[in-house]
Design a binder for these strands. Structure first.
Lengths: 205, 205
DNA sequence: TGTACATCAGTGAACGCGCGTTCACTGATGTAC
DNA sequence: TGTACATCAGTGAACGCGCGTTCACTGATGTAC
């Protein structure tokens, strides 16, 4: 994601090739280092090695960039979850772990994904909301599959997916935010999530 | 909390009486309205009806004010939890509900309490960490009491308190942050927390 | 293959703004005698 | 009870700063002929 779309690197520095994604990468790295709320567009551009005005060729304004960051993150999350499904998993806990791992590796984006006030939507159409729904749809499809396989009790898949999503999100938040868990090795967190999820799934099966 | 400590209101506007708490109240209200990350000291003072320099008679700088906000919030949370204990409760779920209600009513402070980057401690001594430990100590004492009463299996109370705290915090975070749950009536959230906690306690008893 | 030109995607100077912080000041209050 | 004075807790002007955004510009690239 941090490599240029031009691939060859033959583009001159002047015409960057994929400045849009490079800016998002810078924003993500800076958010990780300094905190999401201290992000400035000028610093993002500086880090991407470009003048601060250059960003306006790719985003209408600062909020647009931040929103794009959240949208791109939701797309990556969706990919990770789709990969779990495609790999033939039949366990909800695999989805939960995919979510956990994504959050652990993209803690900075995570803030923008769920804390709307950081990049207030302003308009009637909220692209982050749409991206969020797309990711949740992956979980819904997975729930439908598990029901078809008899791994999950029948019932409104929307409702089950919502509850499951919330549970996954909540458990992940604990590991990201609770001071006592922050330094925990990822493998240990993964094991806890798995055992909790087995208990829950037993209840839903 | 928004009333002056002087009580009588006889103090002139010039000598405010309890500007320190008034500033914290303003900060809390503004954080709720505009988002914690957009808080400015000048706006806080403006809202308290005072010049922006006045704040420096009560706080060394902006971060000091934000830290004090988090500390005060932890103290209130501790009081709420102590009240549950003092009322003779023998159920972990009562503590969980107290936590949930506190968070629901103090969502703005909640951010400062757990998101250290908003008011970076800077120094060797972190007053927020201390305040946090004080609040957690209340839960620990409660766990000890439940164990003495035979309501909870014996075991290291520190460990049990930590797990319980994390669970409470995680569940609360779900209700505060997950879009699907944000608009949920508080009573409904309370019922969910209670039923979840009964299940967990059954496992720990 | 060369040339003219439109377009794309950068640059850097400039703007106004609100911010955090400092400062000399002053009005209000409390205390000593 | 009055007066002198120290202290407390405000005021408002001023500072420098980094920010988001705009602008005229220009270099690099792609296309038509």
């Amino acid at each position: 994601m941090s490599t240029s779309l031009s691939g060859t690197g033959s583009r001159s520095a002047y015409h960057h090739g994929d400045l849009r994604n490079a800016l998002l990468d810078s924003a993500s790295a800076l958010a990780r280092e300094d905190g999401a709320e201290r992000l400035s567009l000028r610093e993002v551009a500086r880090r991407a090695g470009v003048s601060h005005a250059a960003a306006y060729n790719h985003f209408t304004d600062k909020n647009d960039l931040l929103r794009a960051l959240a949208v791109r993150a939701f797309e990556v999350l969706g990919q990770r979850m789709r990969a779990v499904d495609a790999a033939g998993s039949l366990e909800l806990e695999d989805m939960a772990v995919a979510y956990l791992l994504f959050a652990a590796h993209h803690g900075a984006e995570f803030r923008f994904m769920f804390q709307r006030s950081l990049c207030m939507p302003e308009g009637e159409f909220d692209p982050i909301e749409q991206a969020s729904r797309n990711a949740q749809a992956v979980l819904r499809e997975f729930v439908v599959k598990l029901q078809a396989e008899g791994r999950l009790a029948p019932g409104d898949p929307d409702e089950i997916a919502l509850i499951t999503w919330s549970l996954i999100h909540g458990m992940t938040s604990i590991f990201l935010e609770t001071p006592a868990f922050k330094g925990m090795p990822l493998e240990a967190a993964e094991q806890i999530v798995r055992s909790q999820f087995r208990a829950v799934t037993a209840g839903l099966a």
